[in-house]
Simulated assay, not measured.
Amino acid sequence: MWDIFKLKKAGIFAGGVLFGTAGVKILASDDAKKVYTNCTAAVLRAKDCVMKTATTVQENAEDILAEAQQINESRAAKEAEAVYEAEEAEETETQEENTGAQDFKEEEV
């Protein structure tokens, strides 16, 4: 029984060595190098495409940011103008009330 396991282990080891040796030869062959070269070229082309897309997205994001800042500035200016107009209206009402109160006091006399 032990002999079968020893033979099986030895067979697996020999198969692994054979497969490893054949694998190294296949990986080092000229055909394999051509495949590696073509794959590397494809990866570089993909990288260029991704970089172009990333640049476009970044430019669009910068444009969006600039427009958003401009919208916020104009909105803040409108709000400031509304507050200023409200303050002016309040001052005018206060002045009119004071003038009306003075007229009323003069009539009492």
Results as ranks from 00 to 15, higher is better:
residue 4 I to H: 02
residue 4 I to T: 07
residue 4 I to A: 04
residue 5 F to T: 12
residue 5 F to H: 05
residue 6 K to M: 05
residue 7 L to V: 04
residue 7 L to C: 03
residue 7 L to W: 05
residue 8 K to W: 06
residue 8 K to A: 12
residue 8 K to L: 14
residue 9 K to R: 11
residue 9 K to Q: 09
residue 9 K to I: 14
residue 10 A to V: 07
residue 11 G to S: 12
residue 12 I to Y: 02
residue 12 I to M: 08
residue 12 I to G: 00
residue 13 F to M: 07
residue 13 F to Y: 04
residue 14 A to K: 09
residue 16 G to D: 04
residue 17 V to H: 04
residue 19 F to P: 02
residue 19 F to K: 10
residue 20 G to N: 06
residue 20 G to L: 15
residue 22 A to S: 07
residue 23 G to R: 00
residue 26 I to T: 06
residue 26 I to A: 07
residue 27 L to N: 02
residue 27 L to Q: 02
residue 31 D to F: 04
residue 31 D to H: 04
residue 32 A to W: 01
residue 32 A to Y: 04
residue 33 K to S: 07
residue 34 K to G: 00
residue 35 V to R: 00
residue 35 V to Y: 00
residue 37 T to M: 03
residue 38 N to F: 07
residue 38 N to G: 04
residue 38 N to P: 02
residue 43 V to H: 01
residue 43 V to W: 02
residue 44 L to E: 09
residue 45 R to Y: 03
residue 45 R to E: 13
residue 46 A to F: 08
residue 46 A to E: 11
residue 46 A to T: 13
residue 47 K to P: 03
residue 47 K to Q: 14
residue 48 D to N: 10
residue 48 D to G: 08
residue 50 V to E: 05
residue 50 V to W: 02
residue 51 M to N: 12
residue 51 M to P: 00
residue 52 K to S: 09
residue 52 K to C: 02
residue 52 K to P: 00
residue 52 K to D: 13
residue 53 T to H: 03
residue 53 T to F: 05
residue 53 T to V: 12
residue 54 A to N: 10
residue 55 T to M: 03
residue 55 T to C: 01
residue 55 T to G: 01
residue 56 T to Y: 03
residue 56 T to W: 01
residue 57 V to G: 01
residue 58 Q to G: 01
residue 60 N to G: 09
residue 60 N to C: 04
residue 61 A to N: 08
residue 63 D to W: 04
residue 63 D to M: 09
residue 64 I to M: 09
residue 64 I to V: 15
residue 65 L to P: 00
residue 66 A to S: 13
residue 66 A to K: 15
residue 68 A to M: 10
residue 69 Q to I: 14
residue 70 Q to T: 15
residue 71 I to W: 11
residue 74 S to C: 06
residue 75 R to V: 14
residue 76 A to R: 15
residue 76 A to Y: 13
residue 78 K to M: 13
residue 79 E to I: 12
residue 79 E to S: 05
residue 80 A to M: 08
residue 80 A to N: 10
residue 80 A to Q: 12
residue 81 E to S: 08
residue 82 A to G: 04
residue 83 V to Y: 03
residue 84 Y to T: 13
residue 85 E to A: 09
residue 86 A to S: 11
residue 86 A to V: 02
residue 88 E to K: 11
residue 89 A to W: 01
residue 90 E to Q: 05
residue 91 E to Q: 08
residue 91 E to F: 03
residue 91 E to M: 08
residue 92 T to I: 15
residue 93 E to T: 08
residue 94 T to M: 05
residue 95 Q to F: 06
residue 95 Q to V: 10
residue 96 E to A: 07
residue 97 E to F: 09
residue 97 E to A: 13
residue 98 N to A: 13
residue 99 T to V: 05
residue 101 A to K: 15
residue 102 Q to I: 14
residue 102 Q to G: 01
residue 103 D to I: 15
residue 104 F to S: 09
residue 104 F to C: 05
residue 105 K to L: 15
residue 106 E to D: 15
residue 106 E to R: 07
residue 107 E to G: 01
residue 108 E to M: 10
residue 109 V to K: 06
